[in-house]
Amino acid sequence: MNLWKFSKRNMIHFFMILLMLPIVFMIIWLFVSSVYNYNSGRFSWVNWQFLTRSFELEGISFPIIWPIVMNTVVFGLLITVIDLLVAIPAAYAFSRLNFFGKGFALKFLFIMGSFPGITLLITSFFIMMYLGLLNTVFAVVVLSAAGMIPWHVYILKGFFDEVSWDLEFSGMIDGCSRFKCLYQIILPNMLSGISAIAIYAFMGAYGEWLLIKLFIFDNTKLTLAGYLAKVIFTDDDKVTNIGLITAIGLFYTIPIGIFYLFTQSTMMKVTIGGSKGV
């Protein structure tokens, strides 16, 4: 009887754990595959040697991973900064200013935010070629930012909507300009929103690989995701070295998992269209 009561109370946990089994299984499988050779039946850490040194495999040299990690961090921060610099003023305008064609622009924003960026890949390639920006980090940074910014603007607009107008009124009475109001009064009131967007931007940059694969020809400029896409995966559907792929895949996934653990409460600050009773 007691057991029944206990299990009823904890049914939701059973349910959640049951649902999570495939994912947990996947993580375990990834780890096992990275240290265990299914063919020879031996355990070894050989697939993890990228942590300590560069190594050669079947004639290809694989660099040590840390400079690539460094690239990834720099790349992520760069995108985050550009993203915020562009998105915040735009979101402010969308939320609090009146301008010609705003309704249309907002819809356009929505469409852009979820527009299949991939359809623009080839033409973007030619534009970058024309601008002489191919094989530069800059090209990937702006293209990647341009892909994310529309929906970041949209979410930030929601945060601006939440900030009380009275704050801004009082600021204007004190003689602030709109611009001064923005960064002295409003922004400090929506730091959580800004950090949420910053996190999203950083994660977006972390996962970016297609642009890097196509636009960067130089293997010293790769980020982790680009490294994985370009160096480890070479054929569309043939997996040549499961051990190495899973090892690097795990190495890629673990930090972002930990990152989530610490930032998920901030990420949860995001609301769409103000959920407080529309």
Partner: peptide
């Protein structure tokens, strides 16, 4: 000034969304 606020966003979008989109249409 609303347009000043929007300018960076507009330029970025124009260059890396609108123009590629139009170019795709042409292509």
């Amino acid at each position: 000034y609303p347009y000043l606020f929007l300018a960076p966003f507009a330029i970025l979008t124009l260059m890396f969304f609108v123009i590629p989109a139009l170019a795709t249409l042409w292509m």
